[in-house]
Design a protein around this nucleic acid. Structure first.
Ligand code: FES
Ligand code: FES
Lengths: 145, 145
DNA sequence: TAAATAAAAGATATTCTTGTCCTTTAAATA
DNA sequence: TATTTAAAGGACAAGAATATCTTTTATTTA
């Protein structure tokens, strides 16, 4: 088990890739994105469709069409992507799968995981989609396997 | 997505239940465990078989048989259960699914997730199977949905 | 030793996730 | 306006996780 579902991993990598590789006037096609992040092209297409419907990224059809991301979306937190795909289980669910995580009926791991989940949520909600562009350009960070 | 797989959630709950409900001389049957933690009986049987093979819990067949846990296993950390079922992905894998998490080829989330994973690992390796027995007896903590 | 009990083991079923294929729709351009 | 391009949409396929069913093995007890 990883932290995120595979789908969510692809989604985050793709969104970061789009953020640093394209602009509204220089869109990027699914083929190039899939190659750029090492993911199955047709599956990624479905994922981006979903993110596009939810307004996290944008797309246009036809020649010179493709995916891009609006200026102001660059300031959105990564938590939006995670919630769109994996839901809020990582932030709010009980670590041991009890139907609800609460102080009234806490599981044995409640206290310690409360702080872990808070930390995960903080990291993801404080980290924006656009903030890695420079490091990605410089090759300090990677999105490829 | 939750932190652990569903299988792993059942496993942890079951092991904690066995730890506080049985002794080597007072074993507990699969039916009672499954009822005690709200899990599908026959699926849980498979999971406990697996944990039994790996020495985390013990079992005996026949009348008055069932599952139990050795005195010294109570001091084992929960991380053993998690590693037995979900593997070490939660502790060592890359948050974005890159084939290896490393300082040489870090993904954008590397630094922040390194510390999150360390914290998860610490919690699970410092928390022992037996340490909740008293609170479970007193009903302060719960293993049921 | 035979019968009863309870877990182990193996086979099968169901559901969810991941991945692919094929057709349709929207946009650009010739 | 016809053609080309690229994403959207719907259907399907493969694989993995979860769940159930049946038979076998080990242990106890009558
Ligand atoms: S009740 Fe399990 S983490 Fe809160
Ligand atoms: S490389 Fe992704 S978490 Fe380390």
């Amino acid at each position: 088990m990883a932290i995120f579902s595979r789908t969510c991993e692809y989604a985050i990598r793709a969104v970061l890739y789009i953020a640093h590789q394209s602009t509204p006037s220089q869109k990027i096609g699914i083929k190039e994105i899939a190659a750029g992040i090492d993911s199955p092209e047709l599956y990624l297409a479905k994922i981006l469709q979903n993110l596009s419907k939810k307004g996290i990224i944008n797309s246009t059809k036809g020649p010179h069409g493709g995916f891009y991301i609006q200026e102001d979306s660059l300031r959105k937190p990564l938590s939006e992507i995670v919630e769109a795909i994996d839901g809020e289980g990582l932030f709010r669910g009980c670590a041991l799968g009890l139907s609800q995580c609460s102080e009234l009926n806490p599981c044995p791991l409640h206290d310690q995981f409360k702080s872990i989940r808070t930390q995960i949520h903080q990291v993801l909600s404080q980290t924006t989609i656009g903030e890695f562009n420079q490091e990605l350009v410089e090759g300090i960070l990677s999105l490829r396997k």
